[in-house]
Design a protein around this nucleic acid. Structure first.
Length: 254
DNA sequence: ATGGTCGATAGTCGA
């Protein structure tokens, strides 16, 4: 079973990329962030035609998350439980017995800003949500655009980024608190090429110079760690014409 | 230190 996470930065613009990518890679589940679509505009027919069922949680202009799956999604949850949020950043579903939680974690903009405080508040609440989900679903995947680089090897220039947004200590501590519940960063379960990232700024030719960060993560529970056979980032779509600034992060489960 | 580029949308905001 293959599960992917991809921040597409507008599903309207990137629909053809998604269709091409799923045709090439045959994932069973694709979790999408930054659809930037209201639900009325979600391309249900096109994705059904490609062989996927869809659940989605959108809003005007910003954010928006969706799950595409070969098998039927069950127990769909849109938005974090018990958290008032006008931003569409959370969607969960159970697919083939695996609980899948798809996140678009707030960016935070700048350390100390109101958006940064919202990011930390959001992550603190998420911890309780994940704790409950883990208790209910031992086979759990938590994936998405975390907007946090876990460690120095996930940042092209850790000294320049240290303490900055996406790499500040409180953000990393919030991510570690999730891992401490019993989750594993699947990417680090396997040998990886140094300098592998999942996001490159459009500005300053970030991709060409590999000035990236690994902020798109696939976390797996203990039970799924035992079934995880590979975890990788597919840089290919980042080279396509008019790409998203993020590349897909992918795992394969036995 | 600043701004570079995208996408939404129609002057800026968010990333």
């Amino acid at each position: 079973m293959r599960i992917a996470s991809w921040n597409v930065n507008s599903l309207r613009v990137r629909l053809q990329h998604v269709l091409d990518w799923v045709k090439e890679n045959a994932p069973d589940v694709v979790c999408i962030q930054e659809t930037k679509l209201v639900d009325d505009k979600f391309p249900v027919a096109e994705l059904n035609e490609a062989g996927y069922e869809v659940v989605y949680h959108g809003q005007p202009t910003y954010n928006g998350v969706a799950i595409l799956s070969r098998s039927a999604p069950h127990d769909v949850r849109k938005g974090m439980p018990a958290f008032e949020d006008d931003q569409a950043r959370f969607i969960a579903a159970t697919i083939d017995g695996i609980r899948v939680i798809n996140l678009y974690v707030p960016n935070g903009q700048e350390v100390g800003s109101d958006k940064y405080e919202y990011k930390l508040r959001w992550l603190a609440h998420l911890r309780g949500v994940i704790e409950a989900e883990l208790a209910a679903h031992p086979d759990l995947v938590v994936l998405g655009d975390f907007n946090i680089a876990p460690a120095d090897e996930d940042v092209h220039d850790p000294e320049a980024w240290r303490g900055k947004i996406l790499f500040s200590e409180p953000e990393k501590a919030a991510l570690q608190a999730l891992l401490d519940l019993g989750l594993h960063d699947s990417f680090r379960l396997f040998p990886q090429e140094p300098g592998t990232f999942s996001w490159w700024d459009y500005r300053a030719a970030g991709f060409r110079r590999n000035l990236g960060l690994r902020i798109d993560l696939v976390l797996v529970s203990d039970a799924l760690k035992a079934r995880c056979r590979e975890s990788f980032i597919d840089k290919a779509p980042r080279k396509w014409e008019r790409p998203s600034d993020h590349a897909p992060a992918v795992i394969t489960l036995e």
